[in-house]
Design a protein around this nucleic acid. Structure first.
Length: 577
RNA sequence: GCACCCGUAGCUCAGCUGGAUAGAGCGCUGCCCUCCGAAGGCAGAGGUCUCGCGUUCGAAUCGCGACGGGUGCACCA
């Protein structure tokens, strides 16, 4: 139930009627007609821009259209008044009962209130995290993980069929480096001095792995050349690292549907098939790239390579897909991987990358555009850096893993829910300052707490009232909810389905976090009013019917907070103590 | 040099497919607890939405150009 959508439908049908009656010319495009909550509550319940949008194409004055539309709309019992205002806005005041009917709806649907069908069961693949399996996840990865997971939940809620996917970069040179690093730790476990030379992974987390290698292979590898052990250790190590990564993901509440191995692409003909597909479209050729401008290419020399004509799909330069030794570049398996996703029948693809991969966006979009003939949209969301602070001071905790703070460290320090919520209180493409002290602080300065606190307060009031069931609350006489602050709160609840659809279409889960903060704010204000004016208290011994109505209202607040937090992957709390 | 992201209150940031008087938190000033959780609430001060030009009935939002900050720029992923 989306009131805004309902009223928009009403407006559109009124416009159709006006066309049929000759008031408006035929052939108008109503796509830009919107029905929105007004910025100022004094303007009414909803506003539509229809008259202004249509004035020019209809060659009429906005006011004339607005007047005619207003007359039409007030014929509907749901519209109490329709007033023309400002440059041509039509401010609508709705039958108050319409808002009130929302509450039993929320109580009945529970966490499903706001669920949408705009996704039309389209299959969408959300690829995120996708790190090299060479170590534990750090905070930067955590942001991508939380963002991707929340986005996936959001899309699911909006009616998409979602697959959460992790692309394991286990086919490149870094996993060889990992194997060599582990070999040194193996030597260490054997009582020898490890040589962690420049370029190897220095992290302590490999020490255990070295011991595990000793357990498994004894001293059989110790004097052997790399050619003997590299492949084995590579597999052994990447498997172990993926176990580690899976544990990290679990710690932050992320569960992938698919782990897709880059290595598995080799030898199956998939890369050849993907490149062949591009070749058949005339997008593969032998050529020489121009030198990059400005950045003086010290060691640059002209080189003929196999290139993908990505410029024909929006890229700036064509991209090499083969190295001069004949092997594939890293780009080729990536193309094949996305080719595979398309083959698997996804209608939409989303990749979540770190901001440092920004330069990679155009070529990847070009590849997907070419492979799918422009039919499968690829959206690439870049997550900016996370800067950690503690009490305002930059926070560095790098005992275990070189220069990075681990995801584990943060989760251990502030908890999964707090980590997730904080990561989502910023737009993905804005840098995030994460103060670990503030995140656990119990004050309004901390949005996590503030939202959870509202939920806990509702729970507290309901407990005092003897925990009435949602069924018993649906029968409340809601016409008793007449205070402007109450009406405003209910209106806020009515925005939830609309907000959700906007967040889903924009791929922006952070909007949910901000909405929940606003909702909590309205709730806190209302609860406080009860302190100033006892007649506004939720629980009134002298007016049981009013109490029931207010309980229905605040229970609805809790339901929506709970649903919103659920999408963000945060567990609502019933008490803060 | 090129590409992408960003530029909104003293600070950190929201701002919907372009809409009405640009919002929140922190900080600052002043209020509000015998009373459902004051871990809260209310009010005030604080703005040339970096700048310029353009599109439009209307621009923080769209386009172009500056300026400032971040990221990335051939056979590494």
């Amino acid at each position: 139930m989306n009131l805004f959508a309902d009223i928009k439908t009403l407006v559109l049908s009124a416009l159709d009627a006006m066309v049929a009656e000759g008031v408006l010319p035929a052939g108008l495009n109503f796509a830009n007609v919107a029905v929105e909550p007004p910025r100022d509550a004094a303007h009414g319940d909803m506003a539509t821009n229809a008259a202004m949008v249509l004035a020019k194409p209809a060659k009429m004055k906005p006011r004339d259209i607005a007047d005619a539309l207003a007359a039409k709309l007030t014929d509907d019992p749901r519209i109490v008044t329709a007033e023309v205002a400002g440059p041509g806005f039509l401010n609508l005041r709705l039958d108050p009962a319409l808002w009130l009917k929302l509450l039993p709806e929320i109580l009945k649907l529970g966490a499903d209130f706001g669920r949408s069908t705009i996704g039309q069961s389209r299959k969408v693949n959300v690829e995120f995290v996708s790190t090299n399996p060479t170590g534990p996840l750090h905070v930067g990865h955590a942001r991508g993980a939380v963002f991707g997971d929340a986005l996936a939940s959001l899309l699911d809620f909006a009616g998409y069929i979602v697959t959460r996917e992790y692309y394991i970069n286990d086919g490149g040179a870094q996993v060889d480096v990992l194997a060599r690093s582990v070999f040194e730790r193996y030597r260490e476990a054997m009582g020898l001095e490890p040589e962690i030379v420049e370029g190897l992974y220095p992290g302590d987390y490999l020490i255990e792995l070295g011991k595990a290698v000793k357990e498994r292979y004894g001293d059989s590898l110790i004097d052997q050349p790399e050619s003997v052990w590299l492949a084995d250790l590579r597999e052994f190590s990447t498997d172990a690292m993926m176990d580690l990564i899976r544990e990290d993901l679990a710690a932050i509440g992320v569960k992938m549907d698919v782990f897709f191995s880059e290595k598995s692409l080799y030898g199956t003909g998939l890369i050849e098939a993907a490149i062949g597909d591009l070749d058949s479209k005339g997008l593969i050729y032998q050529g020489t790239l121009p030198p990059p401008k400005g950045k003086l290419g010290e060691d640059w020399e002209p080189r003929e390579q196999t290139l993908f004509r990505s410029t024909s799909h929006g890229d700036d330069v064509d991209r090499p897909i083969k190295k001069s030794d004949g092997g594939w570049t890293y780009f080729a398996p990536d193309i094949a991987y996305h080719y595979d996703k398309i083959q698997r029948g996804f209608d939409e693809l989303i990749d979540v990358f770190g901001a440092d991969h920004g330069g990679y966006v155009k070529r990847m979009k070009a590849a997907v555009s070419a492979l799918s003939d422009g039919k499968v949209p690829l959206d690439i969301k870049l997550c900016q850096l996370v800067r950690l602070f503690k009490d305002g001071q930059p926070f560095k905790m790098s005992k275990r893993a070189g220069n990075f703070v681990l995801l584990r460290d943060v989760v251990d320090l502030v908890g999964r829910d707090v980590t997730r919520f904080v990561m989502l209180t910023r737009k993905n493409d804005a840098p995030l300052d994460f103060d670990l002290a503030k995140a656990t602080e119990q004050s309004k300065d901390n949005p996590v707490f503030y939202v959870q606190y509202a939920h806990a307060r509702v729970h507290s009031v309901l407990s005092k009232a003897g925990k009435p069931s949602d069924e018993s609350l649906t029968g409340a006489d809601l016409s008793l909810l007449t205070n402007p602050a109450e009406v405003s709160l209910i209106r806020k609840l009515a925005e939830w389905p609309r907000l959700l659809e906007l967040a889903a279409t924009h791929h922006e889960p952070h909007r949910i976090a901000f909405y929940l903060f606003d909702l909590a704010s309205e709730f806190h204000a209302l609860q406080h009013m009860g302190k100033l004016d006892p007649s506004l208290r939720f629980l009134r011994d002298d007016a049981p019917n009013c109490t029931t109505a207010r309980l229905a209202m605040i229970r609805s607040v809790a339901v929506v907070i709970s649903a919103g937090l659920g999408i963000l992957g945060v567990t609502p709390r019933n008490e803060m103590r």
